[in-house]
């Protein structure tokens, strides 16, 4: 499996570290809100059998965090984005 890093180009997956589902979001209440949101964030996962948005860290490369969209049935990668751009887009009021 090869991941097309926006900065470094296509590199082997062994250069990257995996950090799981990129769609879960950390609650911003600092623990003040209901527990359910934290439990969902820390433990519960959609775990889809198909396209999955996930966090990869280019540890042996440019050290940037990426959001990779990958088909879990075939390992085919549909899209690679910078995690920073994804996070900024999420913060923008729509």
């Amino acid at each position: 499996m090869r991941i097309n890093c926006p900065y470094c180009g296509e590199r082997g997956s062994e250069e990257f570290a995996y950090h799981g589902d990129a769609t879960v979001t950390r609650p911003r209440d600092g623990g003040a809100g209901p527990n359910a949101a934290w439990i969902d964030y820390v433990y519960l996962r959609e775990n889809p059998s198909g396209l999955h948005r996930e966090l990869w860290y280019h540890a042996s490369g440019c050290q940037s965090w990426l959001v990779v969209t990958r088909d879990l049935r075939t390992h085919a990668i549909a899209r690679v984005e910078l995690a920073r751009s994804v996070a900024l887009a999420r913060m923008e009021p729509s």
Partner: peptide, 8 residues
């Protein structure tokens, strides 16, 4: 309708 603490 269940969401599990599991990854495959």
């Amino acid at each position: 309708g269940l969401r599990l603490p599991i990854e495959s």
